[in-house]
Design a protein around this nucleic acid. Structure first.
Length: 109
DNA sequence: GTTATGACGCCGT
DNA sequence: AACGGCGCCATAA
């Protein structure tokens, strides 16, 4: 029997859903929180497959550099940025987020 | 079975 | 700081 099912997306979504409003989490942190260390790329794939009307707060997931990984200028990029700002997350002039202030680690949950 | 593909991450230059 | 290269893991071709 397969030690780990391929349907890890479920677990990933669960961790993402736990990110408190006004905070963000990196892809790597989500992967670790889901028990999938090193599978940061899987997190992006899982979010990529979410329906547009999902209630999962996918916009709270950013990369380790404190930047949005979506193509800058795209609709999704703007939506993510808008939602985060609406929650109180501040963007620096260069477009990055201060992880020291806004990053949330699944481990504390 | 092999190779290509990504909403990633880390390290060296 | 900017860039490039390599590692990572699961899917798809």
């Amino acid at each position: 029997m397969p030690a780990r099912e391929a349907g890890n997306s479920e677990r990933i979504w669960q961790v993402v859903a736990a990110i408190p409003p006004g905070h963000v989490a990196t892809y790597g942190a989500i992967a670790r929180g889901a028990g999938l260390p090193g599978a940061a790329r899987r997190v992006g794939a899982a979010l990529r497959g979410l329906p547009a009307a999902t209630r999962i707060p996918w916009h709270r997931v950013i990369n380790a550099r404190g930047r949005l990984s979506l193509p800058e200028g795209s609709d999704a990029w703007r939506l993510q940025r808008t939602r985060l700002q609406a929650e109180g997350v501040e963007f620096r002039a260069n477009g990055s987020i201060d992880l020291g202030r806004f990053h949330w680690d699944p481990g504390q949950a």
